[in-house]
Simulated scan of single mutants.
Amino acid sequence: MKILLVAGARPNFMKIAPIIREIKANQNGLQLEYKLVHTGQHYDFNMSESFFADLGIQKPDFFLSAGEGSHSEQTAKIMVAFERVCLDEKPDVVLVVGDVNSTLACSIVAKKLLIKVAHVEAGLRSFDLCMPEEINRMVTDSITDYFFTTEQHGNENLLKEGKPQEAIHYVGHVMIDNLLYQNEKVLRADNESFQNAGLKASLAEYLFLTLHRPSNVDNPEKLSHIISALNQVAEEIHIIFPVHPRTRKMLDSFDIKFSANIIQLKPLGYQEALYLWKDALGVFTDSGGLQEETTGLGVPCFTIRDNTERPVTVEEGTNTLIGTTGTNILAAYDSLKKGNIKTGSMPELWDGKAAQRIVDILIDDIASL
């Protein structure tokens, strides 16, 4: 079986990496011939050698140079370039992850060329059609052949949408596979290998913040209210804030001011970010991945959103949805300060073996042909 593995953004590579490592380690993995496609969707598409070395994978075999643009422009550029790759490589399966534009674009191309589609993180739903990612998830799952799900809610959503039971595979979460892999490396590493080791050592307690979702950062009034609340929190505790380029652009455009106790950093690599957030008193974020990763390591997480496509992190994990108002952010910090936090538990099959299950299913499918 020949597989094209598709990634378009840094989190995609973190989800693909465990699958590549498992294919290499699996004694039957020789039955799977794979190549890695980087669509270039992410702003930092010229990733360094060290980025791939940290993940334990090779550099991509194909780089499609999608770059920036509107959702339509970006999707169209990826589709045109990826079609050429598919026509040349003639894969049996195209495996996509997550919910970015690359996920959608490459799935459509594959299906129109009669190539099977495998979707890792299938079935997740926020039920919020204002989110571009929700459109990507729904459309991708409408044409997927192998549904690899991360939580039971994903299975339930797919069955309600009429997907066949035999095509749905509850495998756990490759993001947790990668988290556990990277956490071991961070624990073994010399702290001096991390640029912000001195910063971390100087802070007895701190919060970790990420903020990038368009619904939060593109609206000047909403963003101002969020930062105003965080400035009030920062009067009592330092906040480490690696600033996404999109967010930086908006902050500068709206001329929003920060407390001196909000420590703004440039975007961080995966290991450096993990080194900082894993020991934070709490994480405030609007990211999808951090909701899961904080649950994976038992760190309190407060999600600055009104909904989540990852409900298991709220029901079983350490995540709390707090909405986007300044009042709610302040209330969440007050609860954290008083020790009123969720301890959470690890969801079923979040054990670091999701990639192994995915590869085994694909190999079994070969044997059945």
Score class of each variant (00 low, 15 high):
residue 1 M to C: 02
residue 4 L to P: 03
residue 7 A to C: 08
residue 15 K to E: 00
residue 16 I to P: 02
residue 17 A to I: 09
residue 18 P to N: 02
residue 25 A to R: 14
residue 29 G to H: 11
residue 31 Q to S: 15
residue 35 K to Q: 15
residue 36 L to N: 06
residue 36 L to Y: 07
residue 43 Y to D: 03
residue 43 Y to C: 01
residue 44 D to C: 03
residue 46 N to M: 04
residue 48 S to G: 05
residue 54 D to S: 11
residue 59 K to P: 09
residue 64 L to F: 05
residue 65 S to P: 04
residue 67 G to I: 05
residue 69 G to K: 05
residue 73 E to N: 02
residue 74 Q to M: 12
residue 78 I to G: 00
residue 82 F to Y: 00
residue 87 L to W: 11
residue 91 P to S: 10
residue 93 V to D: 02
residue 97 V to F: 14
residue 97 V to M: 10
residue 98 G to W: 04
residue 98 G to Y: 01
residue 98 G to S: 06
residue 101 N to R: 04
residue 103 T to G: 07
residue 103 T to Y: 05
residue 104 L to D: 07
residue 104 L to A: 05
residue 105 A to M: 00
residue 106 C to E: 05
residue 109 V to W: 08
residue 111 K to E: 07
residue 112 K to Y: 09
residue 112 K to C: 06
residue 113 L to K: 09
residue 117 V to H: 15
residue 118 A to D: 10
residue 120 V to P: 08
residue 122 A to I: 06
residue 123 G to H: 05
residue 126 S to K: 11
residue 128 D to S: 12
residue 129 L to G: 11
residue 131 M to K: 11
residue 132 P to D: 12
residue 136 N to F: 08
residue 136 N to L: 11
residue 137 R to H: 13
residue 137 R to T: 14
residue 140 T to W: 02
residue 140 T to L: 08
residue 144 T to W: 07
residue 145 D to Y: 10
residue 146 Y to C: 04
residue 147 F to Y: 13
residue 151 E to W: 03
residue 153 H to S: 15
residue 156 E to G: 08
residue 160 K to Q: 15
residue 162 G to C: 12
residue 163 K to E: 10
residue 166 E to D: 14
residue 169 H to S: 12
residue 177 D to R: 03
residue 180 L to N: 09
residue 181 Y to G: 09
residue 183 N to D: 14
residue 185 K to D: 13
residue 192 E to A: 15
residue 195 Q to L: 15
residue 196 N to M: 12
residue 203 L to K: 10
residue 204 A to C: 11
residue 204 A to K: 14
residue 207 L to S: 04
residue 209 L to K: 01
residue 210 T to H: 05
residue 212 H to S: 10
residue 217 V to K: 01
residue 218 D to E: 14
residue 221 E to A: 06
residue 223 L to S: 07
residue 225 H to G: 12
residue 228 S to C: 06
residue 232 Q to C: 13
residue 232 Q to G: 12
residue 234 A to S: 15
residue 234 A to L: 11
residue 235 E to F: 09
residue 236 E to K: 14
residue 237 I to T: 09
residue 240 I to R: 02
residue 242 P to T: 05
residue 255 D to M: 13
residue 257 K to N: 13
residue 259 S to Y: 07
residue 268 L to A: 07
residue 270 Y to L: 00
residue 274 L to E: 08
residue 275 Y to S: 06
residue 275 Y to T: 07
residue 291 Q to W: 06
residue 292 E to A: 06
residue 292 E to F: 07
residue 295 T to G: 06
residue 298 G to N: 04
residue 301 C to T: 01
residue 302 F to D: 05
residue 303 T to H: 10
residue 304 I to E: 04
residue 312 V to P: 01
residue 313 T to D: 02
residue 314 V to S: 12
residue 315 E to N: 10
residue 319 N to E: 13
residue 322 I to A: 09
residue 324 T to G: 03
residue 326 G to P: 01
residue 329 I to H: 00
residue 333 Y to S: 12
residue 333 Y to M: 14
residue 333 Y to D: 11
residue 336 L to C: 11
residue 341 I to P: 08
residue 350 W to I: 00
residue 351 D to L: 00
residue 351 D to S: 03
residue 352 G to R: 02
residue 352 G to M: 00
residue 355 A to R: 04
residue 355 A to S: 04
residue 358 I to T: 06
residue 358 I to V: 09
residue 363 I to N: 01
residue 363 I to T: 03
residue 363 I to Q: 00
